[in-house]
């Protein structure tokens, strides 16, 4: 960006050590590091998908899936998608120092993410609602709760991330040149959405539906 680094560089104060990276170089490394982290997480979710395709299977019929209510799953998938849209909008706003749009978009991202989380816990897990599947329902229950649970943990950390970035944006900590915090939050949040893009068909759509008896 600018040739004179010390303008925004309160990290290193008065003197920049020539051996240490500048803020701009650091952001480039941060970006690559975060992507590597996402790539690493791909293996985690791939292992869960592998478990799903390995266990939810019948030698004669092929792939199976638990018979779960379809409408809420579709609705919450769309809610997560909307939150992803607002996250993107917030990132564009931060890059243009458009504080009002940033605020509204971060708030929407957070609320949509929260709706998704609560929706999964209440309607899908049946906590305080009608139960369709239990953790003890054979391989269906085990893998279903492992997949949605691991995803939910990432949604929770993502929500914390969104909340922190939202607050720091309000404090005016991001500029046109340096809004790495917002970009990192966006990459992470979209990654959580990306995982759900694969989990949604794997859990709800692929394979023959089998009804689970619940007493």
């Amino acid at each position: 960006m600018s040739a004179v680094a010390h303008g925004h560089d309160d990290h290193h104060g008065e003197l920049h050590n020539p051996m240490e990276p500048t803020r701009q170089e650091q952001i480039v490394m941060n970006r690559f590091g975060l992507w590597l982290f996402c790539f690493s997480e791909v293996f985690l979710f791939a292992a869960l998908l592998a478990a799903r395709f390995y266990l939810w299977r019948d030698p004669d019929v092929g792939a199976l899936r638990p018979d779960l209510p379809q409408a809420p799953a579709l609705i919450f998938t769309c809610v997560l998608l909307v939150s992803s849209f607002f996250m993107n909008r917030a990132e564009v706003a931060a890059a243009n120092e458009d504080r009002a749009t940033f605020n509204f978009s971060m708030a929407s991202t957070f609320v949509m993410g929260l709706i998704f989380l609560v929706g999964v816990i209440v309607l899908e897990w049946g906590v305080g609602g009608e139960t369709h599947i239990l953790p003890t329902s054979g391989a269906f229950g085990a893998v279903f709760f492992a997949m949605t649970g691991m995803h939910a943990i990432h949604v929770i950390t993502g929500l914390i991330f969104v909340a922190i970035v939202w607050r720091n944006g309000n404090l005016g900590n991001y500029s046109r040149e340096d809004h790495w915090g917002v970009e990192a939050c966006a990459i992470y949040w979209h990654f959580v959405d990306l995982v759900w893009i694969f989990f949604y068909p794997a859990i709800y759509l692929i394979g023959l539906a089998v009804h689970i008896p619940i007493h």
């Binding site: 970006r31 992803s84 996250m87 990459i187 979209h190 959405d193 990306l194």
Partner: peptide, 11 residues
Amino acid sequence: VLNIFMGITKL
């Protein structure tokens, strides 16, 4: 999502 929302090309 990778291309447009996450901006993988920035890498």
